[in-house]
């Protein structure tokens, strides 16, 4: 009896693996591109909303890898991705000027918000200046959660600390080394302050005991750029596919879809129609 069960199990396993083999065989045949992007575009659900429409219209399949901006740019540099969608304008410009990227197209923007617990021990609520808010958090030595992962959000946060002139961040400063969603969950659990892009926060806010305390500072604007990886540096990349995606995302239709993307009745991204803010 046991033996029979065993043979049945093995047969089942072999059967499924053969079935899967056939599946992957088909997948390899289609025209596809690898998109390296940030956790914010993925965790907010934007990509799951945009990409199926693009794939259906163009027949180009998009394999999205969601990592921090630092890793996404590195994947582009190595030629492991065909196109990158990130939010760190300075790094993006360097990526292009060093010849790794073809051209930077401005896709959309949203903004960063400084979040904290309801009690707001540091008293930053309604501060107009993000820099002042960080100074208060530091002097109150309230717990602050940083992504610490070289992502676009992390870079923005570090530039704000630099502006605030606070270099010595001690015990109250915690680096999680994880994506935005995980960092928000950590901040919520620890009743701490953190900084997030608005999109990820809004899409997760039901699960978080955090509220927006500071927003609207010009310094908190968060523009996203899309760049095709340069085939001259990395001959193996699918440049044509990358351009197809860039053209589509910048088209009236792609931009309108971005504008119409809402979570909990809030618009998460504002399209830029290829006009850069900087």
């Amino acid at each position: 009896m046991v033996k029979k069960l065993f043979y049945a199990l093995i047969l089942l396993l072999v059967g499924t693996s053969v079935g899967c083999l056939q599946n992957t065989g088909e997948n390899h045949a289609t025209n596809s591109i690898v998109l390296a992007t940030t956790t914010s575009t993925y965790d907010s659900g934007l990509l799951d909303y945009l990409l199926p429409a693009f794939e259906e219209q163009t027949g180009t399949e998009v394999k999205a890898i969601s990592v921090g901006t630092g890793q996404a740019i590195e994947l582009g540099r190595r030629g492991d991705a065909d196109v990158i969608l990130v939010h760190a304008p300075e790094d993006e410009k360097r990526f292009v000027s060093e010849g790794y990227g073809v051209e930077r197209h401005c896709v959309m923007y949203n903004d960063f918000v400084i979040l904290g617990p309801e009690e707001d021990q540091a008293g930053i609520s309604n501060d107009a200046s993000a820099v002042d808010a960080l100074k208060k958090i530091a002097s109150a030595a309230s717990t602050f959660i940083s992504r610490g992962d070289n992502s676009g959000t992390n870079k923005k946060e570090l530039s704000l600390w630099e502006r605030a002139g606070i270099e010595n961040r001690a015990k109250w400063y915690i680096e999680t080394g994880t994506g935005m969603g995980q960092t928000l969950l950590t901040a919520s659990e620890k009743e701490a302050y953190t900084i997030s892009d608005r999109a990820t926060f809004v899409s997760m806010k039901d699960k978080l005991d955090l509220k927006i305390l500071v927003s609207g500072d010009r310094l908190l604007l968060n523009p996203y750029g899309i760049i095709a990886v340069n085939p001259r540096k990395n001959p193996g990349v699918n440049y044509e596919g990358a351009e197809t995606l860039i053209r589509w995302i910048g088209s009236d239709e792609g931009q309108k879809m971005i504008k119409d993307f809402t979570k909990k009745d809030e618009q998460l991204f504002t399209p830029l129609y290829n006009k850069c803010m900087d």
Partner: peptide, 24 residues
């Protein structure tokens, strides 16, 4: 694998992703 949806997402990597998204 890169945890690509429909391509290289397996049970363990999907758990990591969904947890980080708060989709418990």
């Amino acid at each position: 694998g890169g945890n690509i949806r429909y391509h290289t997402r397996v049970l363990t990597t999907a758990i990591v992703l969904e947890t980080s998204r708060g989709e418990f």
